[in-house]
Design a protein around this nucleic acid. Structure first.
Lengths: 225, 225
DNA sequence: CGTATGTTTCGATAAAGATCGAAATATGAA
DNA sequence: TTCATATTTCGATCTTTATCGAAACATACG
């Protein structure tokens, strides 16, 4: 019997191309059906089923059954951030044979990381908010200050309109393209959603790219320098 | 031919038990010979050689040849942090069948992450320094402020005594046990080294555990509350 | 009820790769 | 030089597992 550290099993799961494709698709934060994930991974439904079972068994995926559809999604922030890190590492190591195409560029500028904004714009947003004193970094983690509450209120985000949950409000997430932090957690999710609602940005289907309109970009720049 | 995202290949490399054992051993930050790594992984020298070749080829390991010995080490912070993240994820997901033994507890308290202090004590250290205004979080990443320079000088760490390098002085590293940041980068390394030099702490051989003496712990507590 | 669709289980196949024995290579020591 | 140690290369074996076809199962819809 092979014995190795626990994380080896997790890495092995992520390491299969078909499964990696599924996980990539789920990085958008959406829940996808088994069939959709099979297509996404380029394998048959049976094969996909087997993979999904393994991923779910390991705790990487969450399952919501709705009628004859089974919706899979990443089981949480932790998983998304680990994947993001792996992507960043791969991008960094591959500098020898990496060709940065236009699509890659768009990903670096603004993309969805699980459910919040990542990329240069995400990093800028977080840096500005941090500079304005929106966060307090105590022993118990990062919390939103009064100044922070005021800041996001200007965007139309108020505490009481956000879903209650035990998940942390604010969290840092390291950005692979910039190597700096951006905002994750429930607030990060709320802000990206707000940008979409306001029409500042939209998600490009089938990708993780977030496309800002020219008006939205202007608004964003005004707010986040 | 199988095609998947780049990070799948990296994850697959990490996912093999033998290789994962080698990488775990290298998380101490030390460089180890091929033979030592073979023992560590529990495989023959030939097998180890093959694994090491792959890891090095992918850019995960750095090789320093010294006579008939070949010393391997992690190629950088990025790699160490990704592994740390994976370990954290595995620890989090395994809550169903995880038994936290005493050794695990020691790891949570203080351990080596590549070359800097991690665990509760690492998190505390970073939080205190952050609270004292040791760092400035600008667009160009985290930098040491004058207050920060003063702070570490009290420990006997001065800029000019630190090795010059293009690697960043300060960097955040997310801690798996605490889910909060601790200090990485050259400064992080210098501080752990300093603790060892001062006799406050020592590394427990064969493990990643950092053991503080009672005197060292008192000093540490006085400094980092 | 029967039919269509989405998903899983079973079984067999095939490919990938981890493993080690034996031999080759390289370096250091006597 | 000769011997010993460290490591790699080659070749063969063997286990693991991704894959898909066929069939079973589940759910929705008429």
């Amino acid at each position: 019997m092979k014995t190795g550290p626990d994380f080896a099993a997790i890495a092995a799961l992520i390491g299969d191309p078909a499964r990696a494709n599924m996980l990539t698709a789920l990085m958008s934060g959406k829940a996808l059906t088994a069939g959709e994930l099979a297509t996404e991974a380029g394998v048959s439904a049976q094969t996909a089923s087997s993979h999904l079972h393994k991923l779910q068994n390991a705790g990487l995926l969450r399952l919501q059954q709705q009628g004859r559809h089974r919706y899979f999604s990443l089981s949480g922030d932790e998983v998304a951030q680990t994947l993001e890190r792996l992507m960043g590492l791969a991008a960094g190591l591959g500098h020898l044979r990496t060709r940065t195409g236009p699509r890659d560029q768009a990903l670096r500028t603004a993309r969805v990381c699980y459910n919040h904004l990542a990329g240069d714009m995400g990093v800028r947003m977080f840096a500005t908010m941090r500079r304005r004193g929106c966060f307090d970094f105590g022993d118990s983690g990062m919390v939103l200050t009064d100044a922070g509450r005021e800041f996001v209120a200007a965007l139309g985000i108020t505490q009481d309109r956000m879903p209650r949950s035990k998940a942390p409000m604010c969290r840092e997430c390291l950005d692979w393209s910039a190597r700096k932090s951006h905002l994750a957690g429930r607030l990060g999710r709320a802000m990206l959603t707000r940008f979409e609602t306001l029409g500042w940005a939209r998600r490009v289907p089938e990708t993780r790219i977030v496309q800002f309109s020219s008006r939205g970009l202007a608004k964003f720049d005004a707010m986040f320098g």
